[in-house]
């Protein structure tokens, strides 16, 4: 029996702004198993990024409970949650989000900054993952000296350098051309086949082809959860 990695139970999130309340999540429950690759699809405002940020320990839910590897995420203090993110999660953000004044190598070493590894060990780990994503020879370049695809690879290398069990990716191919996007998706597929669990938010139905399971969201609710692509049009019928 495959183990559950993420267990979300009746997650709700309400944003308050100038007296108005916006319900971003209206009771989302789901389970994601270790080794799965899951795409979360949905229109803008459907709540998929909010779900990702809650699972990522960055955004406390208004109600409900989320466990990752049996750990009740929001029962932890903020600082413990930071430690949790460092050990359990790898983030791949929209538009790469590299630190502009750090080289590819330094960007990748960032999650290791606050660990007790030696400087040599940190460098070895960063070199290993940069080579793994095909960036050997470009490790000392600054982000602005690299193409979009290369920057995305640096972002992925940064997400996996601390060997987390779970990768959270937010529109990882959104800023890339189709060909580069496909290459990146292949990279995610390879990482998943090596045992990493991947949860990816995406607009692009093509990205779901290489993902094992697709969840569709609409208006803060899950409207489909299956191992195949569900056209968004199908959500409307439900």
């Amino acid at each position: 029996m495959t183990e559950v990695l993420i267990k979300a139970d009746s997650l709700k999130k309400i944003y308050k702004s100038f007296g108005d309340e916006v319900e971003a999540l209206r009771g989302v429950s789901l389970e994601i198993y270790k080794g799965e690759s899951v795409a979360v699809m949905g229109h803008s405002g459907s709540g998929k990024s909010t779900l990702l940020s809650i699972i990522g320990g960055l955004n406390p839910p208004s109600a409900g409970r989320i466990e990752i590897d049996g750990i009740d995420l929001y029962a932890l203090s903020q600082e413990k949650r930071a430690d949790f993110r460092r050990e359990y999660l790898g983030f791949v953000f929209q538009q790469f989000q590299l630190i502009p004044y750090l080289t590819a190598m330094e960007n990748v070493m960032l999650p290791l900054t606050t660990t007790s590894y030696s400087a040599k060990r940190k460098r070895e780990m960063a070199e290993y993952v940069l080579t793994r994503v095909g960036l050997e020879g470009k490790m000392n370049r600054l982000p602005n000296q690299m193409s979009g695809g290369e920057q995305e690879r640096v972002a992925i290398a940064r997400a996996i350098v601390n060997e987390p069990p779970l990768i959270l990716a937010d529109e990882p191919t959104g800023s890339l051309d189709t060909k580069t996007g496909q290459e990146i998706m292949e990279l995610f597929h390879e990482l998943n086949s090596e045992g990493l669990t991947i949860l990816m938010v995406t607009h692009n139905p093509e990205n779901t082809a290489s993902m094992g399971r697709t969840i569709s969201m609409k208006d803060g609710r899950l409207c489909a959860d299956q191992a195949e692509v569900v056209p968004l049009a199908a959500c409307k019928a439900r």
Binding site: G56, L58, Q78, E79, A82, D83, F84, R85, R86, E87, L89, F91, F93, Q97, I99, L110, P111, T113, T114, R158, N162
Partner: peptide, 16 residues
């Protein structure tokens, strides 16, 4: 702001 958000997301504590 965004850069600090990244630091926090990848596991930097407030004190870091």
């Amino acid at each position: 702001t965004r850069e600090i958000g990244i630091f926090r997301a990848i596991g930097f504590r407030k004190s870091h």
